[in-house]
Design a protein around this nucleic acid. Sequence first.
RNA 1: GCUGGUGUAGCUCAGUCGGUAGAGCAGCUCAUUCGUAAUGAGCAGGUCAGCGGUUCAAAUCCGCUCACCAGCUCCA
Length: 631
Amino acid sequence: MMKVKLNGKNIEISKKEDLYEKIEDFRNVTALDINGEKRDLFSIINDGDTIEPIYYGTKEGLDIFWHSSAHIMAQAIMRLYKNVKLAIGPSIAHGFYYDIDSPEMIKEEDFPKIEKEFKKIVKERLRIEREDISRDELLAVYKKENNPYKVEILTNIEDDMVSLYRQGDFFDLCRGPHLPNTSYIKHFKILSVAGAYWHGDEKNKMLQRLYAISFKTKEEVDEYLEILKEAKERDHRKIGKELDLFSIFPEAGPGLVFWKPAGAFMRNLIEDLWKKTHLENDYDLLYTPHVAKKHLWETSGHYEFYKENLFPDMEFPEGEHYLIRPMNCPFHILIFQEKLRSYKELPIRYAELGTVYRYEKSGVLHGLMRVRGFTQDDAHIFCQREDLDEEVKKLLDFSIFFIKKFGFKDFKVYLATRPEKFVGDPATWDQAEKALENAVKEYGIDYEIDEGGGAFYGPKIDIKIKDALGREWQTTTIQFDFNLPERFDINFINDKGEKEHVIMIHRALLGSLERFFGVLIEHYKGDFPYWLAYKQVVILPINDHIKDYAEKINDKLKENGVRSYIDKRNERLGYKIREAKLKKIPYFIVIGETEREENVIKPNGRKEGELGKMSFDEFIEVLEKRKNAED
RNA sequence: GCUGGUGUAGCUCAGUCGGUAGAGCAGCUCAUUCGUAAUGAGCAGGUCAGCGGUUCAAAUCCGCUCACCAGCUCCA
């Protein structure tokens, strides 16, 4: 008899099979947590063990499920392709991948073939068995196989003993745990294949990475594919084209955005709100030039750090060098240090919708999300050390105001610490990191540490918002900077009458207007809130004879500040309605003889559907209510 | 920047074996005056991304360039 603890309850068993009977929903258990360690499901159980089952539906359970799936996919590939060398095959947030080195290119049309072989392996119901082996022995095997990747991994392992997992004709160096056999993974789909550097280092060989997903049921796979489909539907590049929001013209230059009337209108609304709220929050608004002498960014250090990513400099015959600006900070610094500053005027908050240009590598450009010219909603706060706490809290408030205003329900705060490449002395860094952490803690908000994610000149707080599909997008960044004040020697006179270096906070709340707009498009799926919509109401006259009444309604709407227009085209009602819906206009009004005679309108809202007959004034009230609800 | 893929009308896409370019939608004209997601007919629309090569003949095969897409790397 053995005494073990299962899910916190003491039980007695005579053999391990008894334990399995006691575990609820045993068929959905992928592995066991034994004394805090993840082990294979059919591991040996010892007297006194504390056991918790790891279930399929949980994060840990899926992790194991997908890890075993990766092995099966690798096995299928090994069976189908010659001279394949395996690198690594982990599970990821959604699914898994395997990096392989194969002389033959795997293409999308090969996926069904691999999927078929995968299913075959599942049907074979191969036992997945752990084998403990000496590191040197396995090293010899991989050396013989001429697999440099596994050899490298093994060489970096310090233990004498390692484990491998074997299933039929396949084995792989692996820590485990794994599923008991291959039959668990009923449904599987390869999603994509693309290049990936070994160790993620561009100096290394590029391997082929196959991304895939697997589940127990077909429904789960379908559901996942549905989410991918939905993400595609929401793609801001697609919606941007459909709604005529923006264009990028390769003939003008990749990564350079043209805001077309509808998009530009919305951007103006965003900018108006931004300016108004910044003034309310004691910021001063600036305008500064788009080009300036290169030495400014040499002083700031940006040139040295980012010269690969700058537009080439402009040299004049007299030898003067200019740069199109990649950063706004030196300009704000110039204005700050133009005259002597007293501690009494701090903090000074300079804000600017500053357009910057960065030569991003061709492969990273992506719609509005990654571009070569973009407008930061930038600000620099010049303050004293003791102001930091208060300023960070104000910034968090301000950022969250925007997040809510644009309909985001959820967000995450990250504290990014010192990166490998940094300037300044580590003691100052530690101090700054602590100050940021304190401020966030006092603010009473959950946060995660992003180790080594800081800017080269200081630690930062990043806020990532979650969109309607649960995807994270970085918007707000709040960065401490003890570096630029030194480099530019920016000072103020403190209360003792001495010169002291100012502290700088760089911050962007929306990030860049381009990117933020892209996120908004995907978040709303182009179905913008009433206050932001380019056109708010479209009037659909039933025929030509009702045009006068339509004009009258339209004029009155405009008088009330409503963005409306008449669809005057000689088309049927159904056609006009269809287009109003496709354009995602918040309201349309059908008017004909009946409405004119009764002096009413019959509005229809995207959200509400038919609103029924109402007077014009009643409709204005509906619109006002809607607007206020969104505020 | 790297690996792979793609590039045909304003948009979405078809185009077989290399034989000389096609549809739907949008646009324009005409008819229709219509009640809650597409009225009908006609017309027009192309340097098949660009450049070069192979060939009697290239959208199609080959090379280079550009751009886009997926991923990797990067993102002050």
